[in-house]
């Protein structure tokens, strides 16, 4: 048993901050991907012909019933298997993005169904096409109504982004591991990483609160 010494963390400030930066990049890119892919999945499940809708449903069902970590291994090694040699960061963004797209799609599907049918009838009767009706009338209202659950998915995404350290992406956990391999002080570095995640989480929650308020006002 050795005494704890948090001053060992200080020389690694740059490394850890770089880790924070990549965690932010990773989370933001996956969040954007999960949002738009989520909308596409929801529309596919609801309106696409069966040949498209059923595979999407199967995919959603599989990704909701299995752990993210397992999916990351599938995507990381699976992409190489099918001859796509993309860097680990790409695989991480794709994995996180698809995983949360499925959860967003599940929420958005309910949100789309809940939009008053009068809205799309109105849009169609003034000459909007089917796609235009979805794009300009139905989906925006569904997104607005489902902002809180999508927000909590994004909070989960930030925390789960720590998992991509296992496929070697140099984000916050990976940075901490690198420092630990030199200092042999896991407790200090993991606690520091936890504190940094906690801060990021607070910032994200505050940001989401503002977005939700804005959405609330524009209703």
């Amino acid at each position: 048993m050795q005494g704890l010494d948090f001053s060992t963390v200080l020389p690694y400030t740059d490394l850890l901050l770089k880790g924070v930066w990549w965690t932010v990049v990773l989370t933001t890119s996956s969040a954007v991907l999960s949002f738009f892919a989520g909308i596409l999945f929801a529309i596919a499940v609801l309106y696409a012909p069966a040949v498209v809708a059923y595979p999407v449903r199967l995919f959603m069902w599989l990704f909701m019933g299995t752990p993210l970590l397992l999916q990351l291994f599938l995507i990381y090694f699976g992409l190489v298997q099918i001859g796509l040699d993309i860097p680990a960061l790409g695989a991480g963004i794709l994995g996180l993005g698809l995983h949360f797209a499925v959860y967003n799609a599940d929420v958005l599907r309910a949100g789309i169904v809940a939009v008053d049918p009068g809205q799309s009838e109105g849009a169609r009767s003034i000459g909007f096409g089917r796609w235009q009706t979805l794009r300009y009338v139905v989906v925006p209202q569904a997104v607005r109504n489902t902002a809180p659950p999508i927000g909590s998915n994004m909070i989960a995404l930030l925390k789960e982004s720590s998992l991509v350290s296992v496929i070697g992406i140099a984000e916050l956990v990976h940075a901490a591991q690198l420092a630990i391999s030199e200092t042999f002080r896991p407790f200090e570095f993991y606690i520091t990483a936890a504190a940094l995640y906690y801060l990021l989480n607070l910032v994200l929650e505050e940001g989401l609160r503002r977005i939700e308020k804005k959405v609330e006002v524009s209703r």
Binding site: M1, Q2, L4, K159, E160, S162, L163, S165, V173, I180, R185, P186, F187, E188, Y190, I191, A193, A194, Y197, Y198, N201, L202
Partner: peptide
């Protein structure tokens, strides 16, 4: 708040890898 605000992975690492440092 602490356990919901940080990743589960880090919590496991603190306990398993950091635990020995605090006995």
């Amino acid at each position: 708040s602490l356990f919901r605000g940080t990743p589960c992975l880090i919590q496991l690492f603190v306990l398993y890898f950091g635990g020995p440092q605090i006995g």
